[in-house]
Design a binder for these strands. Structure first.
Length: 114
DNA sequence: CGCTTGACAGGTC
DNA sequence: AGACCTGCCAAGC
């Protein structure tokens, strides 16, 4: 049971309560070469135990809502309930809440230095 | 099998 | 700053 999607899910499960990460950050931390788009696709099919709402775009925008406004509102309410602050109605404060792990699990770490 | 569609990102103008 | 282009890649048709 492996593959890019599961690697993505393992990483997203590590994003702590009250913190957020971006599609690009998750892709960069992933061991396999995947694109941010693939992370987005994985989120759209994520299992129940994956905190998909903690993944936003690079600037903190909630880029989910084009097809489902209800999902956008759900994401916003979930983040607000975790104490995440917003700089705009659809944009979280990345400076304060971006997840910046010192170490990513070896199995997931890609051979690159930031 | 080829074309379109995105829950993206980096660059140009 | 914001519109636009390109690379990206799994799914769906």
């Amino acid at each position: 049971m492996s593959g890019p999607f599961n690697a993505v899910y393992r990483l997203v499960r590590r994003v702590p309560h009250g913190r957020v990460s971006s599609y690009g950050d998750i892709a960069a931390m992933c061991a396999e070469e995947i694109s941010p788009r693939t992370v987005g696709w994985a989120m759209s099919a994520s299992p129940k135990d994956v905190p998909w709402h903690r993944i936003v775009n690079r600037r903190g925008r909630l880029t989910i809502g084009r097809r489902s406004v209800a999902l956008l509102e759900l994401q916003r309410s979930l983040l607000e309930s975790e104490g995440v602050e917003f700089v705009h109605v659809d944009q979280v404060d990345m400076e304060k809440h971006r997840w910046t792990p010192r170490r990513v699990p070896q199995a997931v770490r890609k051979g690159r230095r930031s």
